[in-house]
Design a binder for these strands. Structure first.
Length: 474
DNA sequence: CCTGGAGTTGTCCTA
DNA sequence: TTAGGACAACTCCAG
């Protein structure tokens, strides 16, 4: 009798290296039946956005190639797909790495008990977080609400360290009796080829992730602490989509950076990178303990906040047609490349929620649909943070001035000029506030009298005052 | 239970 | 030009 296979259910861990569920299955010696199930249709309003779906298609293709084209893919209800698979293949066990979206936690718990009831082994592992949410608490047992103590004491206190990434090249035999892969049938690819530029800039999949890490370690990490704020420079890691889909583990990134720490040239930069990974942890921690975070204000007093409703204004923000150069640059970068530099994310989010007083959930939804790295935990935690309704103590008067931010973090205008060619002809002095330039300069740069960059959609001073008033009303 | 220090990412005005 | 304080007061957290 042939050995019964072990199903390895891939989810947000689309890699072979440092994959605890896969490693555990390989260790058993049984053939591995690798499976991916597209079931986000059942996730309520958190069906994957268009950009993510393109990435997933590419990433699955890459994983399938690594698995010698043996990946079994299906769409639909995960429980019944697994049920049928167990039935048809005589599988002895199902292994997977844990996810932390509330709907997935619930679903996985149901699946685990259903499988166990059939006397089939169901086992889950930690492959995606340095410190899982249920392992971190204050001395009194309640969850942290502030990042710094969460990270310093909760994660790194008392000699706690994340586990080392397991980089051994594990050997396993793939189960040959499964149906053929049919990634194309998942319907992840869009009909219109809007992803051409994304395909040029990104390489979804495990080898692309490792290459990106190496490139970052070689040429981005040194100077990261300061440079990461500059959208005109290349000091951010751009690992977020790879991390989201689990093409690389945070452990791998953490320890690869730590290895450079003895070099004094890197000391502060490594700490800073690790703390950014810590923020990723914190977002997942918050989502675990506050499952309503993607929908509801963490600070309930914000239920009274006087948000404005304006489809038209929201559209202009989405299109990058606000008349504020750095905001438009960011929104267009997002639309064209599926990515936006972190500093600019904060600027556009502040503009939407404070200057326009449009609900953070509208911004969250747009990012969800357009970001390649759309991640329920990171996205919702960050939007609540910027809007001021999160658990941290960001003071309400912290309202970004996009002109000041632009001058500070894009001083030569290279970033704005790349995405907003309309204003490229202005001098650096007025690039970030074209409306303030002398008329002669506006004309010479080709800005018509009714051009949006001479009449931005919001007066920064007046809208700031209005936001401060709105906050005071709480 | 009490207490005191601290809190990712800013802006604006004034001297 | 630039540095420093105001902008409020609250909650979190650890000792």
């Amino acid at each position: 009798m042939a050995a019964k296979p072990i199903i390895v259910w891939f989810r947000q861990d689309l890699r072979l290296t440092d994959n605890p569920a896969l490693a555990a299955a390989a260790k058993q010696g049984a053939p591995v039946l690798p499976v991916y199930i597209l079931d986000d249709e059942n996730s309520g309003e958190w069906r994957m956005g268009g950009a993510s779906r393109w990435w997933l298609h590419e990433s699955l293709s890459s994983l399938n190639a690594s698995l010698k084209r043996s990946l079994y893919v299906a769409r639909g209800d995960a429980a019944s797909v697994l049920d049928d698979l167990i039935e048809n293949t005589g599988a002895q066990a199902v292994y997977w790495n844990r996810c932390y979206e509330p709907w997935r936690i619930k679903r996985d718990a149901r699946i685990k008990s259903a499988i166990t009831e059939r006397d089939i082994e169901a086992k889950s592992f930690n492959g995606s977080l340095l410190f899982e949410p249920h392992t971190v608490a204050k001395a009194d047992g309640t969850p942290y609400k502030v990042f710094t103590p969460f990270y310093r004491k909760g994660c790194l206190g008392e000699g706690r360290q994340p586990r080392e990434a397991a980089l051994d090249d594990i050997k396993f035999k793939v189960f040959g009796g499964g149906p053929p892969s049919a990634i194309d049938d998942l319907g992840l690819m869009p009909d219109i080829e809007w992803y051409a530029q994304m395909a040029e800039e990104w390489e979804p999949g495990e080898s692309g992730a490792e290459a990106r890490l190496q490139q970052f370690l070689d040429s981005g990490l040194q100077g990261y602490k300061v440079g990461r704020n500059r959208p005109d420079q290349t000091h951010v890691s751009r690992l977020s989509p790879h991390l989201h889909f689990g093409e690389i583990s945070p452990h791998r990134v953490w320890w690869a950076a730590r290895a450079l720490e003895p070099d004094p040239e890197f000391a502060d930069d490594v700490d800073c990178l690790c703390s950014e990974l810590g923020w990723r942890e914190f977002a997942h921690y918050l989502l675990y303990h506050e499952p309503q975070m993607p929908q509801e204000n963490l600070q309930t007093k914000f239920e009274r906040f006087p948000w404005r409703e304006s489809e038209a204004d929201l559209k202009r923000w989405q299109r990058g047609d606000t008349g504020i150069p750095i905001v438009d640059a960011g929104m267009r970068e997002l639309w064209q490349t599926g990515y936006m530099h972190n500093r600019v994310r904060m600027i556009v989010a502040s503009f939407l929620t404070k200057n326009l007083l449009i609900h953070w959930r509208d911004g969250e939804a747009w990012f969800w649909d357009t970001l390649l790295d759309a991640d329920l935990a990171n996205n919702s935690a960050s939007w609540q943070w910027v809007a001021g309704c999160g658990t941290d103590a960001a003071p309400y008067f912290r309202i970004f001035n996009p002109v000041t931010q632009g001058k500070k973090f894009d001083p030569n205008g290279n970033y704005v000029r790349q995405y907003v060619p309309e204003v490229a002809g202005l001098s650096d002095k007025f690039l970030h506030e074209p409306w303030a330039a002398p008329e002669a300069e506006q004309e010479a740069a080709g800005l018509d009298a009714d051009c949006v960059y001479r009449k931005p959609m919001a007066d920064l001073k007046a809208s700031r005052e209005r936001a401060l008033e709105a906050f005071k009303s709480l």
